[in-house]
């Protein structure tokens, strides 16, 4: 990824992510979040993570955000009209965030021992390579993830049916 691509993706990413938390209407927030996830998928493509980029669009932008929009519509939410009453907390959040990012930048600047990028294997990030690792080295975590999803499905149905 060269610098032009990086900034062409990173600047909209940050602006839209701020819109997610700044927009008063939850529906707009959800749609901005979809846009953020799409941009991240493109970003992943530039980082040679093809499978992850496809999953990002299918799972996040496809499944999870539809769930969000469904719930927003079910609840019939209006925009927040009253501002948050605790101004102090907001200011603390912003100041803390700026300090965190500054510290991160300083830390990364100090760690000058930038290793050269390792050469990539032939099929890095493809469905085949990811799948074969997932079903051999990571078989047990994969099975546990399956059980976790089953528990989540059962839990969601039980909770929503009550």
């Amino acid at each position: 990824m060269d610098f032009v691509t990086f900034f062409a993706l990173a600047i909209p990413l940050v602006v839209i992510a701020i819109m997610v938390i700044a927009h008063p209407s939850p529906v707009y927030s959800a749609l901005f979040l979809v846009l953020t996830l799409f941009l991240l998928a493109v970003y992943f493509l530039f980082l040679d993570a093809h499978m992850v980029a496809a999953l990002q669009i299918i799972v996040y932008a496809g499944a999870i955000m539809v769930l969000f929009l469904f719930v927003i519509m079910l609840l019939n939410l209006q925009s927040d009209t009253q501002p948050t009453p605790r101004r102090g907390l907001g200011r603390a959040a912003i100041i803390g965030g700026v300090i965190l990012v500054a510290e991160l930048g300083l830390l990364l600047q100090r760690s000058s021992s930038e290793r050269a990028e390792s050469s990539l294997p032939e099929n890095f990030g493809t469905v085949e390579a990811l799948g074969s690792q997932l079903f051999t080295t990571y078989l047990l975590p994969f099975e546990i993830t399956g059980i976790l999803l089953l528990v989540a499905v059962v839990g969601a149905v039980v909770l929503a049916k009550r």
Binding site: I21, F68, V71, L89, A93, G97, L100
Partner: peptide, 18 residues
Amino acid sequence: TIGVTGVLLRRNIIIIFM
């Protein structure tokens, strides 16, 4: 950090979730 700020600033649980 934008995510953390959102959790601290917004009061709507759905937006906190996002």
